[in-house]
Amino acid sequence: MIVRKLPAVGLTVVMALALTGASAQPGTESNQIPAAPPTTAEAKAIIAEHFKAADINHDGKLSREEAKAGMPEVYKHFKEIDVRKRGYVTERQIGAYWEMKTKQQMQKEDPIWN
């Protein structure tokens, strides 16, 4: 059996990007088994889908306003993601930020193996 390991920060970022504004439905059972964390490919697909929806003018870039409206977690970390200080972020920059945070968390959780 292979166990997929995605650190807490990586999972948090992906799930926050995917489920911002989502809340538990009343009457749902709390003893349900949580879904497995997304794989890297699934995380990329989630980011791509939300980026496409947030990119209102379809220029391949998210301005602060587009991020605030469509990807609030990206907006929260906009300064960190926009490393070149251009006033916009690309899907690739968001993915690189997520990957960096995931690697940092993996190193913190298990420094010997990572």
Rank of each mutant, 00 (worst) to 15 (best):
V9N: 03
G10V: 06
G10Q: 08
L11K: 13
V14W: 09
M15Q: 13
A16F: 05
L17A: 09
L17E: 03
T20I: 09
S23E: 09
S23Y: 07
A24I: 00
Q25P: 04
P26D: 01
G27K: 02
G27Y: 01
Q32P: 02
I33F: 01
A36L: 08
A36D: 04
P37I: 06
P38E: 13
P38C: 09
T39N: 03
T39Q: 07
T40A: 15
A43S: 15
K44E: 11
K44D: 12
A45C: 00
I46D: 11
E49N: 15
E49T: 15
F51H: 02
F51R: 04
F51S: 00
K52S: 06
A54S: 07
D55A: 12
N57V: 07
G60R: 00
E66T: 00
E66Y: 02
K68Y: 06
K68A: 11
G70K: 03
M71F: 04
P72K: 13
V74H: 02
H77C: 05
F78R: 09
E80V: 05
I81F: 01
V83W: 13
R84S: 07
K85P: 05
R86H: 15
G87Q: 12
G87T: 14
Y88R: 03
E91C: 08
R92E: 14
Q93K: 12
I94W: 02
A96E: 15
W98E: 01
W98A: 10
W98T: 09
M100D: 13
K103A: 10
K103I: 08
Q104L: 14
Q105R: 04
Q105N: 08
M106G: 09
M106C: 11
Q107V: 11
